[in-house]
Each structure stands twice: as C-alpha cells, then as structure tokens.
Measured scan of single mutants.
Amino acid sequence: AEKTGIVNVSSSLNVREGASTSSKVIGSLSGNTKVTIVGEEGAFYKIEYKGSHGYVAKEYIKDIKDE
C-alpha cells in the first residue's frame, strides 16, 4: 500500500540513511518534489530514493495520498 506525498520545505529536505536525525544524510530533495512512501518509522517516512530507500522527517511531507 504505497502512498505519495509532496516535500513541503522552502529550500531542501535531507534524505537520511535511517529513521533518525543522527543518521547519515545520503541526499536531499527540493520543495514540491513528489515522493513515494513505502513505510514509516517513528517520526520518519521511508521513501523510494535513487533506486533504493531513504528516510525523511514526516513533518516536512504534505498531501499524503494513497496510490
């Protein structure tokens, strides 16, 4: 049951290796980017990222929809 969301930041949002603010940053997404959410862990969504997965803070994702 995948969902999509939109990155809701003015600059960019860090994509992390794990569901923690201390996890390594593996990339970033600019505002209004559409993401595919494959799961959630605590305050983070697990998303599809560059052929693999990454984690982003839930508070910066809006317009969550079921695909």
Rank of each mutant, 00 (worst) to 15 (best):
A1M: 13
A1R: 06
E2D: 11
K3P: 05
K3Y: 04
K3E: 04
K3L: 09
T4C: 07
T4R: 09
T4F: 07
T4A: 07
T4N: 06
T4I: 14
T4Y: 06
G5V: 04
G5P: 02
G5E: 02
V7K: 02
V7I: 10
V7S: 04
N8F: 05
N8Q: 10
N8G: 10
N8R: 14
S10P: 09
S12F: 13
S12L: 11
L13Q: 03
L13R: 02
L13D: 02
N14A: 14
V15M: 02
V15S: 01
V15F: 02
R16I: 05
R16V: 08
E17L: 11
E17K: 07
E17C: 06
E17P: 01
E17M: 12
G18E: 13
G18D: 09
G18V: 08
A19S: 10
A19H: 06
A19K: 03
A19T: 07
A19N: 04
S20E: 06
S20P: 02
S20M: 06
T21H: 15
T21D: 14
T21L: 15
T21F: 14
T21G: 15
S22K: 13
S22I: 11
S23H: 10
S23T: 08
K24E: 08
K24H: 09
V25R: 05
V25P: 04
I26S: 02
I26F: 03
I26H: 01
G27Q: 02
G27I: 03
S28K: 14
S28F: 12
S28W: 11
S28E: 12
S28V: 12
S28H: 15
S28N: 12
S28Y: 13
L29S: 01
L29Q: 02
S30I: 15
S30T: 12
G31H: 15
G31E: 10
G31A: 15
G31T: 14
G31Y: 11
G31M: 14
N32A: 10
N32C: 06
N32Y: 09
T33C: 06
T33V: 09
K34V: 11
K34G: 04
V35H: 01
V35K: 00
V35D: 00
T36C: 07
T36P: 03
T36E: 05
I37T: 01
I37G: 00
I37E: 00
I37L: 04
I37F: 01
V38M: 08
V38F: 07
V38A: 05
V38L: 15
G39R: 04
G39V: 03
G39L: 04
E40A: 08
E40G: 05
E40L: 06
E41Y: 09
E41R: 07
E41N: 09
G42L: 06
G42V: 03
G42I: 03
A43S: 14
A43N: 13
A43M: 13
F44D: 04
F44Q: 02
Y45H: 04
Y45L: 07
Y45S: 02
K46S: 03
K46R: 08
K46A: 06
K46W: 07
I47A: 00
E48D: 14
Y49E: 01
Y49C: 03
K50R: 11
K50E: 12
G51T: 09
G51N: 11
S52W: 09
H53E: 08
H53R: 04
G54S: 03
G54M: 03
Y55W: 15
Y55L: 01
Y55T: 00
V56N: 00
V56G: 01
V56F: 01
A57D: 15
A57G: 08
A57E: 15
K58Y: 02
K58M: 09
E59Q: 11
E59R: 12
E59D: 10
Y60L: 07
Y60R: 05
Y60Q: 08
Y60G: 13
I61F: 05
I61L: 08
K62N: 10
D63P: 11
D63A: 11
D63W: 09
I64D: 07
K65C: 06
K65V: 13
K65Y: 12
D66Y: 07
D66S: 13
E67N: 11
E67G: 12
E67D: 11
